[in-house]
Computed example of a mutant assay.
Amino acid sequence: MNDRHEDSDGQAASAPAQEQAPRRRAWNDEARDSLHILPLSALPLETPGLQHARLIKNVRLQTVIEMFNDAQAGSGQVAPRQVAVYFESYQEQVERDLVKIEKIAQAASFDVYTSRIELRRLNINVNDHEALTLSAKKKAELTQYMRVFTRPLIECVYGSEEVNINSVDDLIRMFATPNRDEALRNLRMMADRLDVALQEIPQFLEEYGDIFLSLAYFRKCLDEIVPEVQKFLTWMSEVRSSQEVKRDSRQCKMLDEINRDLTDISTSITGRFESFDNRTRDFWKDINAQTFRQIRELIAAHHVTIGGVLCGLEVKMNLWKTRFARGGGGPNRRLEFIKSEILPGLSHIKSLEQSARTQGA
């Protein structure tokens, strides 16, 4: 039986290949939008086949190479050094590739913003690399978050007029060709205050859009993760109140420390975002080149620690939701999960958040 059929142009096409294309697209988009996945296609690798694999952070926040992920077969993960056994005909290429992989594997997170920073440190070109940009779907999801940052910009130029903006691209197009004399005058005034030429405003908007798109992305991640942490703490408190655990002071101490650490981490990173919001409002009260440069550098300086903290919390909460999808679980089963999956790596998340406090916001 032949697996091929003719497409609309009369050319032969493979049915399995056509079926795989949407899956491959979804696989790639998941990686681009994730905190804990980096497609190896983002690196200039020599080994055929490795470009289709991904680096991921496991629940202990160790970096492994995921060779495949399938609903039936599960996730095929190997430590970077073990990947050579899969490519015995390319030993020299694998060794050279592993130098790059092992360096980027040390990153605290694999979100696109942190990955760009880390890859630039390795002198790897990240410009216009699709694997290092958010997917169109994710950008659309962030539209409501971006309105927080686009609204003051629109009001600065267009006043209180209702303007429909669905993306940063819409914003750039609108300001590149302002449709009112008053808007043009306001744009000229903004250009003067930013110390740029009027024709450079679209470039400023691209920079503005990218830095605040990153903040919107992390804010959405935070808004999804923190409620899950709160649910987990409630679930864990039920273990703490069981008679069996109450009799063991060491277990009680461990649970109390985990509760305190997760609460402190969540409170601290939420406070950082509130500080960013305040700085953004201050920027629009006194818009100038220096204040924009300061806020851009401030947010960029926090990318790595924000990504690392959210990545760590996300992988742990995701595993908890998978293992205990319906809640429940007896005290011993819960306690074993907390000790084996939540506790390892938690000190790393805590130290990342503590280090961020010294940066200020």
Rank of each mutant, 00 (worst) to 15 (best):
N186P: 07
E88A: 13
A107Q: 14
W27Q: 06
D282C: 05
A140T: 11
M189F: 11
E162S: 08
F68M: 02
D192S: 13
P48K: 03
F273R: 01
V239E: 04
R357G: 09
P44K: 02
M146K: 14
E19V: 13
G76M: 05
E207Y: 04
V78E: 10
L233W: 05
C156G: 07
W27T: 02
I287N: 03
R60E: 12
Q106K: 14
E46L: 15
M190S: 12
F204A: 03
A361K: 00
Q251R: 15
R116F: 01
L205M: 11
Y158H: 14
R151A: 15
R32V: 05
I295N: 10
H348W: 05
I299M: 07
P202H: 03
T358Q: 08
L98S: 02
R151Y: 11
F292G: 00
R60S: 12
M254N: 06
I225W: 05
S347L: 07
S8E: 14
A79C: 00
A197N: 11
E88I: 09
Y208D: 08
E297V: 08
T263R: 12
D97C: 08
P39R: 06
T270E: 10
A31T: 01
L298Q: 10
A53Y: 00
D7W: 02
Y90A: 10
T291D: 09
D111H: 08
D256K: 10
E155G: 14
Q203I: 15
D264E: 13
N278W: 01
L233I: 04
E314T: 14
P152L: 09
R81A: 15
D248C: 08
P80L: 07
S109R: 15
F204T: 10
S249Y: 07
S241F: 10
N123K: 13
R260K: 12
I154T: 08
D170K: 02
G76I: 01
P331G: 12
Q290I: 06
A131L: 06
N28S: 10
D7K: 04
V112T: 13
E206S: 11
N2W: 00
L35N: 14
L122W: 04
E95V: 09
E341L: 03
R121Y: 06
F232V: 02
V59C: 10
L198I: 03
A140F: 03
V245N: 05
P22E: 12
L352P: 08
T143H: 05
L262I: 05
N58Y: 02
R188M: 13
S75C: 03
G159V: 09
A191S: 14
R326H: 13
A84F: 02
M146A: 03
S109Y: 15
D3M: 12
D70K: 01
A361N: 03
W27D: 08
V94S: 06
L43W: 09
E257R: 15
L298W: 01
E162C: 00
T114C: 11
P152E: 11
E118R: 15
Q91F: 00
S237G: 07
E238Q: 09
N58F: 02
I56Y: 06
P80Q: 07
Q20Y: 13
H302F: 07
F324K: 11
C156N: 13
V85Y: 03
G307C: 01
L134W: 04
A31I: 00
A79E: 01
A191T: 09
L35M: 14
E274Y: 04
L198T: 00
L45I: 06
F218R: 11
E161Q: 14
R116Y: 02
A79V: 01
A131M: 11
S167I: 07
A289W: 05
P48L: 05
L346A: 04
S14Y: 13
V78S: 05
G360D: 01
